[in-house]
Nucleic acid binder design. Structure first.
Lengths: 230, 230
DNA sequence: AATGCAATTAATGTATACAAAATCTCCGAT
DNA sequence: ATCGGAGATTTTGTATACATTAATTGCATT
């Protein structure tokens, strides 16, 4: 796409993913424009794009804010991601090339090396490599539409920093999933691949719930799966 | 949202859904702007929004065109829709209110009355009622994110005019699905509901495939209208 | 002090002017 | 006649000015 719009998009997106804006904080077009060094027009386009991806929301007063991931929504969204990414992975298993499988394998190597015996573990790097892993899988599915649908859902887990909360055993399990997925790809077994990916995401969801409960242990609010009363 | 942008969005979206632009045709911002009666700015925003929903695509040369639904893609997308809408329907079964179930029931009545013994069947009206039915179900799922993800996929089937190709027996089956879905909602049985919805979409896919094969064998070129908005 | 309301300020929405890029045209070389 | 390419033209990208709407301030009233 165009230069200024991309610049604005990248800048805002990175800032959001790194948590540089407090949730609920108002993102003013003028401030963003001057900070990034472009005019308001490309900033506006970038905000709309990010809104479409779900990273940014517009309140009724037309103000843009970083999306707030509330407990109940997060649960729905993890399920949704498991479903969609499972489907995409099944497609990928049929279509992926050997070269791409090798790339995945190399990424799995790097991730294991990154965490092997290191203390503290470099979670930022791990999270980055993990994103790359998932990106390649999505790409292999060969559906542009599916990719755009997934984009926002994957980014959600980055914002929530789920990877940063993995215990050593959870990390090991995650690495195991990567290896098993590569095996399923090598066999071009779509149901196997789908199943592994679904496990991978649902395990991440469980980790998120656990880590979140611990953090909120002082808070008397239990995780609720609620139905609505309207 | 804002007045001019909404006006542009509605105008372009309706024109696309009614097939007033030939597929692959270039949508020029200036023409659209003068036709609709606003400036280019809101037209641009509308185009980006429609692009995010999948109705419009930008080619590498930055030109906007109506999305072309090619055979293989359509197949993926029907599967995707079956998956997503099935999931949404399962959520809806847990959360839907009695009032909404009554609305669905009323819609099912209207659809059956619309087609009962009439010749020719008013497919436009049917398709519209059917869209409303699905919209209510999606709303009942209570996930705004899920709704926006689905929007484009549902609109795809409108563009493809799948409903217009239903045979009498296929129509009857479709009505049966609606009734069964309402029963599943009354029982708040999410798996039943999901299953019915999945059947409903996959049946639509099969109809599309069948109708498409027939059409291609008889008439190699689909009828294309070229009109303009307003 | 708290409240309501008008005036002010600030933010977003829209139009328009200009810049950059893509497309088209037309002419000359082969 | 075909091809290539230098301008001309059209179209999109960006900046900016102006319009509209939301938020804030500060004063008057109670």
């Amino acid at each position: 796409m165009s230069r200024a719009t991309d610049k604005a998009y990248d800048a805002i997106r990175n800032a959001v993913l790194q948590g540089n804006f407090g949730v609920g904080l108002r993102l003013k077009e003028n401030d963003l424009a001057t900070t990034i060094g472009v005019s308001r027009t490309p900033v506006r386009e970038a905000l709309r794009r990010l809104n479409a991806e779900g990273l940014i929301e517009f309140k009724s007063n037309h103000r843009a804010t970083v999306t707030q991931w509330t407990g109940e929504n997060v649960d729905d969204l993890f399920q949704l991601r498991a479903l969609l990414e499972g489907f995409a992975t099944a497609l990928a298993a049929e279509r992926i090339s050997d070269a791409k499988i090798n790339e995945l394998s190399a990424l799995a190597d790097k991730m294991e090396q990154t965490s092997a015996g290191k203390r503290p573990v470099n979670f930022d790097r791990l999270s980055q490599l993990n994103s790359e892993f998932h990106r390649i899988v999505m790409e292999a599915a060969g559906s542009k539409r599916l990719q755009t649908l997934m984009a926002g859902l994957i980014e959600m887990t980055i914002i929530l920093r789920t990877y940063h909360r993995y215990s050593p055993s959870e990390l090991a399990r995650s690495f195991g999933h990567h290896r098993e997925l590569i095996a399923a790809f090598l066999a071009h077994d779509s149901e196997w691949a789908r199943s592994v990916m679904t496990s991978h995401i649902l395990a991440a969801r469980a980790s998120y719930v656990r880590a979140n409960n611990n953090r909120n242990s002082a808070d008397p609010k239990p995780p609720q799966r609620k139905t609505r009363t309207r």
